[in-house]
Amino acid sequence: EETGVRVELAEEDDGEKIAIKLWLRIEDIKKLKGKYKDNEAIEFSFDLERDVPEDVAQEMVESGYVCEGDHKTMAKAIKDRVSLIKRK
């Protein structure tokens, strides 16, 4: 499903790190509610043992990086990427 958002690794995952750096990349602004630039990327750290995707997305909303209306879309994108990383 195309959401307009993609999360990718910002650094090589060696399988050892607990906290990883990720990029939340805006790919299609028409599919989102907030005002973003095409190909805008937000770099953030995610602790694989402690962080919760919904909470991280909420922090982005509170910091003004993400529109409240896009919270669920961002949280799902983060959750999907993190579950792929954890499965390795």
Rank of each mutant, 00 (worst) to 15 (best):
G4L: 02
R6Y: 05
R6G: 03
R6E: 02
R6N: 08
E8F: 01
E8H: 02
L9Y: 03
A10M: 07
A10H: 08
A10Q: 07
E11Q: 04
E11F: 04
E12M: 11
E12S: 10
E12Q: 12
E12C: 04
D13E: 12
D14G: 08
D14W: 07
G15K: 10
G15T: 07
G15W: 03
E16N: 11
E16Y: 08
K17Q: 13
K17D: 09
K17V: 04
I18K: 15
I18M: 15
A19C: 15
A19D: 11
I20W: 04
I20L: 13
K21R: 13
W23A: 15
L24R: 10
R25W: 08
R25L: 13
R25S: 07
I26L: 08
I26C: 08
I26D: 14
E27M: 15
D28R: 01
D28V: 04
D28W: 02
I29Y: 15
K31G: 12
K31V: 06
L32F: 08
L32M: 11
L32Q: 06
K33G: 07
G34A: 02
G34R: 00
K35N: 15
K35A: 10
K35Y: 06
Y36Q: 03
K37W: 00
D38P: 15
D38M: 12
D38E: 15
N39W: 05
N39L: 05
E40V: 11
E40I: 09
A41K: 15
A41T: 15
A41N: 10
A41P: 14
I42Y: 08
E43S: 12
F44V: 05
F44A: 05
F44T: 04
F44K: 04
S45M: 15
S45A: 11
D47C: 03
L48T: 08
E49F: 04
E49T: 11
E49G: 07
R50M: 06
R50I: 04
R50V: 02
R50L: 02
D51S: 09
D51W: 03
D51R: 00
D51L: 03
V52C: 13
V52N: 15
P53C: 04
E54R: 02
E54Y: 01
D55A: 13
D55M: 13
D55R: 12
V56S: 02
V56D: 02
V56A: 03
A57W: 01
A57R: 02
Q58S: 10
Q58V: 00
Q58A: 12
E59N: 12
E59Y: 08
M60I: 04
M60V: 00
M60T: 00
V61W: 02
V61A: 02
E62R: 13
S63C: 12
S63M: 13
G64I: 00
G64T: 00
G64M: 07
Y65A: 13
Y65D: 09
V66A: 03
V66G: 02
V66E: 03
C67L: 04
C67N: 13
E68S: 13
E68H: 07
E68K: 10
E68N: 05
G69E: 15
D70F: 06
D70L: 07
D70W: 02
H71T: 12
H71N: 05
H71Y: 13
H71C: 14
K72A: 15
T73A: 13
T73K: 14
T73P: 04
T73C: 08
T73W: 11
T73D: 02
M74L: 12
M74N: 00
M74I: 15
M74R: 01
A75T: 10
K76H: 04
K76V: 03
A77Y: 05
I78E: 01
I78D: 00
K79A: 14
K79H: 14
K79V: 02
K79Q: 12
D80F: 05
D80Q: 11
R81E: 10
V82Q: 01
V82Y: 02
V82E: 03
S83Y: 03
L84N: 10
I85Q: 03
I85F: 10
K86Y: 06
K86G: 03
K86N: 09
R87I: 04
R87C: 04
